[in-house]
Design a protein around this nucleic acid. Sequence first.
DNA 1: AACGTACCCTGCCGGC
DNA 2: TGCCGGCAGGGTACGT
Length: 266
Amino acid sequence: MPELPEVETTRRILEPHLLGQKIGRIKHQDPHKYRRTDLAQGRTVVSAGRRGKFLIFGLDKNLELIVHLGMTGGFRFEPASHLRVTLELPKQRLYFTDARRFGKWWVVDAGDYSGLPLLAKMGPEPLSSDFTPEKLQASLAKTRRTIKDILLMQEAVAGVGNIYVDESLWQARIHPLRRARSLKPGEIARLHHAIRDVIGRALEKGGSTLSDNSYQQPSGEPGYFQHEHQVYQRKGLPCLRCGTPIERIAVGQRGSHFCPRCQVNK
DNA sequence: AACGTACCCTGCCGGC
DNA sequence: TGCCGGCAGGGTACGT
């Protein structure tokens, strides 16, 4: 599923194709999921940014086109199955495919995220200097939730989803069901480092393409970080640190993979 | 206010 | 072999 590394990889690839280009028609059949996109037609793209898992394309006339890829959304340079949106540009077309249709588009006045409350309260970018162990500690201290829950909520840190939470918790040797506010300073320091390390390495590899093949770069090329997963979708396989079989449990509604020996729920 | 849960959606998988 | 129920999960709505 697209998380920060996949969304940022998409952003970097799309940026040169969009900057300075005037958007023509945007064709789709689902106005509920692709809201007000008529307002982007005829506008020129002036920036291509990202916040957490949201792509934010700045347009002239002080507008922004915001895209969330959901579970299976992705841009393609060529038509593909599960085509949902076609975006016409002067020299090419961009296609948006989304098998499970959890992806959404919005057009808003620049910076007005009143219709996207999650974006408004998004936590620090994990690879920025804004993300510090102190800020992480402060976020974890004010909740009774588990560490897995709070990391998925995007307010403690932006852009981390199910894959990279599991990978980060494994690297930091923290059980997913630990109460967030019970983490000791040393554990928070390990977790902070693990999140930055995992997200950074995943980004270098172009993200993860899972067995369902849903995430692809716009060219159709996959990501390569799935080959470096330590726990995600490795249930029953030996922990690559200690050999104990990886377990899978439900946390909230999410599958969670962890090593019962390395990650003890104290 | 904070937390838990149902829901959205559809391809895929396992069981029969 | 083919059908079908259940599962996966980011984000949101809603009830407690």
